[in-house]
Design a protein around this nucleic acid. Structure first.
Lengths: 198, 198
DNA sequence: GTCTATAGAGTGATAGAC
DNA sequence: GTCTATCACTCTATAGAC
């Protein structure tokens, strides 16, 4: 870890994941980084600024990863398979950051909160659009795209949360399991199953 | 709210849900309850004791609700349908407490943490046993019962988290939607889908 | 059962030397 | 870029009066 700024970020990701944002003090981060707590403020203007930076980088990378993986693929079902695999793999590979991004939104200022939610909404829109296109061309069931997208994403996000790298399955195997499960649900659930939604 | 102890619990559930356990101070709870913070300690020995009480009551009630709903039902598929509906309905009716029980485990002492996790494990075992029995009699697919139970429970728990009481669907309608979705998944997912697990 | 008062420790953040 | 020192405040929890 050549760069102190990167060290602080890595230490913070680890602590925010293990103890939570509010339970982690700037002193904890400084101790883990091997510097005094005042030195943290040379690199970041506040503890919240550090949280925001971690969350924003995670969401931007998540969106970028999905866009890259989808580029050049035309078939709707193939695009959905790729989207699910992309989501699961990203969450498995950057487990701690994604856990933070999903659980520490309350630590952000109102302005930063809005920014992160906007990025999250854009990501969910990709899945909802795929569900709508798949339904209109008869590949997927007709149902509330918003509720369906939440179901798909939370199922996969939660799956990634209990994954242990030293476990029996590789990230590749797990992403295939969820890909097949979601596609099965989108094709076989009886019509009207997800009609109406919050 | 005749009883001050009950008032403190209700106020704490609201604050822990809205702001999180660590971001909520004993002063906040006292202010919400209309007393001085020192008076909180007449009713509870510590802030953690209050969190533990809320979590334990929620888990005990969750288990009791499931047991009552399952009593007298023999058929495996019918039992699974009832179990899923029971889970979803309980999470919709006591949304805040369940959210706390699922997200504030880090606030507990090691001893209390173990106690809550034991209760949660017992609850999950009911679902895993149903999955195993259904598979052995040919009603459900064969697959890793643990991974399947996690998928079912987190899908339904997450669904309950974004539910808004003033929304379009009633708790009854939502619990039916999830019941049908889970049963469809348990009956139609191709064999080997959930083989192997964390 | 609830109050006032306070102990004792830790918090996020800043000033200014080097 | 990192340090020491410190500000101003908040936190959980307790003591003891009423």
């Amino acid at each position: 870890m050549a760069n102190m700024r990167e060290t602080i970020i890595a230490v913070s990701i680890d602590l925010f994941h293990r103890k939570g944002y509010f339970a982690t003090s700037v002193s904890d981060i400084a101790r883990g980084s091997g510097i005094q707590k005042a030195s943290i403020y040379y690199h970041f203007s506040s503890k919240e600024d550090l949280l925001y930076h971690i969350m924003r980088a995670t969401m931007v990378d998540l969106n970028g990863y999905l866009t890259r993986n989808l580029s050049g693929i035309e078939d709707i079902e193939a695009r959905m398979r790729v989207a699910v695999r992309s989501h699961v793999r990203f969450h498995l590979e950057r487990q701690k950051e994604n856990f933070i991004a999903n659980s520490e939104l309350r630590g952000l200022t109102a302005e930063h909160f809005r920014d992160i939610v906007t990025l999250r909404d854009a990501y969910e829109q990709v899945f909802q659009q795929l569900i709508r296109e798949g339904a209109s061309q008869g590949t997927f069931v007709h149902g509330d795209a918003k509720l369906l997208s939440y179901a798909i994403l939370t199922l996969c996000t939660a799956g990634a949360a209990w994954y242990k790298p030293e476990g029996r399955l590789t990230a590749e195997q797990i992403s295939h399991i969820y890909e097949r499960f979601v596609i099965a649900g989108l094709k076989t659930a009886d019509a009207g199953l997800f009609q109406g939604a919050p």
